[in-house]
């Protein structure tokens, strides 16, 4: 039986994942990591986290696709899981539609305080 998670993070950049884990762990959240797009959805279903932090550019499967599948899930509780989207693509028009589907969007590089604040709000 897996330990219950507050946050599941899907991010391929190890250093960024390490940084996020360091920040949020010190905040007291239990955080798990999935390093690629492939299998991310199964991992979310299995872990049922209270928040998903999702990178947009992932090897295997893009964050946008994962988000769309999550929102379309038949399990209404799962589909409503809050999602924080991380993107390294600035905030141009290509990113705009994602911001509407995701509950929050952080552009890389973000400040640690911003990350703490957004996660606190989403898990409040």
């Amino acid at each position: 039986m897996p330990q219950e998670l507050d946050i599941l993070m899907i991010e391929d950049e190890t250093n960024i994942a390490e940084a996020v884990r360091f920040i949020l762990t010190r905040e007291g959240w239990r955080i798990g990591l999935h390093p690629e797009g492939k299998g991310a959805m199964q991992r979310i279903r299995a872990a049922r986290p209270r928040l998903v932090i999702l990178d947009l550019m992932l090897p295997g499967r893009s964050g946008a696709e994962i988000l769309a599948e999550l929102r379309a899930d038949t399990d209404a509780g799962l589909a409503a899981t809050p999602v924080l989207m991380l993107t390294a693509r600035g905030q141009g028009p290509a990113v705009q539609p994602l911001a509407e589907k995701a509950d929050a969007l952080l552009a890389k590089p973000f400040s640690n305080d911003d990350l703490r604040r957004v996660v606190r709000e989403l898990l409040a």
Partner: peptide, 21 residues
């Protein structure tokens, strides 16, 4: 340009986060 933005922002994210730590 989109790619370059991505490639520049990714290492900068780590640098920023860890330098704050």
């Amino acid at each position: 340009l989109d790619q370059i933005s991505h490639e520049l922002r990714t290492p900068m994210t780590s640098i920023r986060a860890f330098s704050e730590f």
